[in-house]
Nucleic acid binder design. Structure first.
Lengths: 193, 193
DNA sequence: GGGTGCATGTAATGGGTTACATGATTCT
DNA sequence: AGAATCATGTAACCCATTACATGCACCC
């Protein structure tokens, strides 16, 4: 809803462009699907927060270009003045790790390694993004804020990586123990025959 | 859904207890409301994942105590074997910061300070929790995994705190600039009279 | 007397994703 | 020939929170 207004302050865009822009900018901490974008744009046009004009293209389908209105800007600043409420995040990795006792440690090791890799790629992407994307329009007054948001992601990813390292060490210790105890079980079975 | 199964492996509980236990353990990374818990328990009883027996109490309402079945345990380990998929988190603070240009920096400073405070209290809570709650049942085989999950939260909160410090410094710089430019605007207005 | 805790449950409501439909062009 | 990109939109569906209903007991 308000993401759309916010992005339209940068420049008028179509719903399709908004989807792409979201993925390429705020996508790391805020996502909207097209099933959300198009109906919301329509609704906001009805409320007078945005205006739309259709642009013909050859070969390609028509585009509906949306622009934010004065009323829309007011709506945006109103929303910005409301203190953000901390959302309850849902972390499936942590939940599965929490019940990890029920499952061989090797499985958990795979999970942690995978998320570490994801953190690493996202970290690189953010670092590159800050340099390229944001430095490109360094003149834009919003750039410092973009950097702050990106910086948040960088610090978080670094924390995840450090955690993953520590956790992998612990999990490997457990996995070694599990292998050993399964070996002795096998020996006992051998001896029992 | 599966949180309930997981917690029921520790001990049989009522829906009400499950709600309390969730808040006190996995609540930092996974929440379920009662509007979710009660219907799910009923559904899982129908699927044979749990069994229920009613316990009378004097003065207080009856309790329905749920126990996990063998089928339920199988279901849980199956679920644990499915790699967790990274969810798209929604961070309202970052979104508002991203569009921060539209609003005086003082407002953003308040937001960041508030979240820093929240991080600090959660960090303390986690550190205490690890010492007390988890050390209390140190004998329980799940304890190491609980510690890993809690550790994740600790490292993340520390990262948030470091980020908040840096960001507050930057925001204060911007706020000072804004105050200065509003002063000069006032002076000009004076001079113009 | 009124608030709080215990305890279970349902219904309304809202938010969001996924899937589908359409149709031309361009790339492989 | 078939897949992918551009572009908009709707409908079905799922999941989750909130609000409401009930009722006893205990504490201030």
């Amino acid at each position: 809803m308000e993401v759309l207004l916010g992005l339209l302050t940068i420049e008028p865009m179509s719903g399709y462009d908004l989807g792409l822009t979201i993925r390429g900018s705020v996508g790391h901490f805020w996502n909207e699907s097209y099933g959300q974008i198009y109906p919301n744009l329509k609704k906001m046009a009805g409320d007078g927060f945005v205006t739309a004009k259709t642009e013909r293209q050859k070969g390609k389908p028509d585009r509906r270009i949306y622009s934010i209105t004065k009323k829309g800007r007011e709506r945006l600043t109103e929303w910005l003045a409301v203190p953000p409420q901390a959302e309850i995040p849902r972390n499936e990795l942590l939940l599965k790790l929490f019940f990890g006792e029920q499952v061989p440690a090797e499985i958990l090791i795979g999970y942690v390694e995978r998320t570490a890799e994801e953190s690493r790629t996202l970290l690189e992407l953010l670092e590159r993004g800050v340099r390229e994307e944001i430095d490109k329009n360094r003149h834009y007054p919003g750039a410092p804020y973009w950097r702050m948001a990106a910086h948040f992601g960088q610090m978080e990813m670094k924390a995840h990586l450090r955690w993953a390292e520590k956790t992998l060490a612990e999990l490997n210790k457990i996995a070694r123990k599990q292998r050993k105890s399964s070996e002795t079980r096998q020996e006992k079975r051998h001896a029992g025959r």
